[in-house]
Design a protein around this nucleic acid. Structure first.
Lengths: 168, 168
DNA sequence: ACCAGATATATAACTAGGTATATAAAAGCC
DNA sequence: GGCTTTTATATACCTAGTTATATATCTGGT
């Protein structure tokens, strides 16, 4: 196993390291979702959840609540619309505004996921984050180690095998 | 100020949140580098540092020590080579292998940066990470808050204004 | 009413990541 | 030596971020 240089660089490579960890978490989350048999775009979960909470929302607001740049949200929305997760329309009072809402199908699938998929994922990620107590860099290192040792899917499987009184 | 939905989603949006934070850190780091008048590709610092430490290295090994996928490294190397930071050549004993090394100019600039740029950056990031003591999510939230309140460039400036006995 | 400035979103351009696969070269086996 | 399998990297395709700018629309002042 090669030495992990990002770790030795400490704060100097924190940005790179967090992006890497974010990629890992998203990939493992999507794999875990697939394991449950669900067909959900895990990476877009925050956007879908925002729509669930806020109801019909314009693109600029979505960008603000998600803390990302507007053009990215425009593209994400276009993609989700093409895939049938959201639908959009121009606002009658201001033709610049495009309002995004969940399709009925998407709302149902999210409702279902809220019951059986997201709790599994949340528990698995929390489990991975439970190790380590030190400062931020140590916590990141601990999380990286934890994910490498036992990807989320394995943690979820362990949770299921442990029975109903498992990981709460 | 819009509510930050990623925060409310806790572990469910940890991957997205880390990628966002990584983007923020890298952007602020590059701005801070520009403030110092240096012309360094901050996002490629880990790769350049790896070459500094390991000497001439093949692409697969770079991918391994950086913990990223090989095609990304190929692309990064191509870009750095075009910009004069690295040079590559085929290995005589194994024509599949491409060996990457720093150019002499790059080595000098990195040497200089090691003295005057990276310590500034490291201190600023460490400063931003210093707040908060709770579990990982709280630590991330604290870091996000800290970066929003005072971007790295401002932290570095505060460090310089504080004089030589400032932030150690 | 007209115009300048502000605003919302689309588009352009770029960066940086992933997985999958293609191509070439090396290694190992018979 | 010939063939099959493995390995290293390039390439294809896709995703997801950014900043900058274009386009259309709205707002407010005169």
């Amino acid at each position: 196993m090669a030495e992990d240089i990002l770790r030795t660089l400490g704060y100097l490579a924190l940005g790179s390291r967090m992006k890497r960890l974010g990629e890992t978490l998203q990939a493992q989350t999507q794999a875990l979702v697939a394991d449950t048999g669900a067909d959900l775009p895990a990476a877009q979960y925050p956007l879908l959840e925002a729509l669930e909470r806020l109801g019909p929302t314009k693109i600029g607001v979505l960008a603000a609540v998600l803390g990302v740049a507007q053009p990215g949200v425009t593209r994400m929305v276009d993609k989700l619309e093409a895939a049938g997760w959201v639908e959009t329309q121009r606002d009658n009072d201001d033709r610049r505004v495009r309002t995004v809402r969940l399709t009925a199908t998407a709302a149902r699938m999210l409702d279902q996921a809220r019951k059986d998929v997201w709790p599994t994922i949340e528990a698995a990620v929390a489990d991975a984050c439970a190790t380590g107590t030190g400062p931020l860099l140590d916590r990141l290192a601990a999380l990286e180690d934890a994910l490498k040792e036992a990807p989320l899917a394995r943690r979820a499987a362990a949770g299921r095998k442990g029975g109903e009184d498992g990981r709460s």
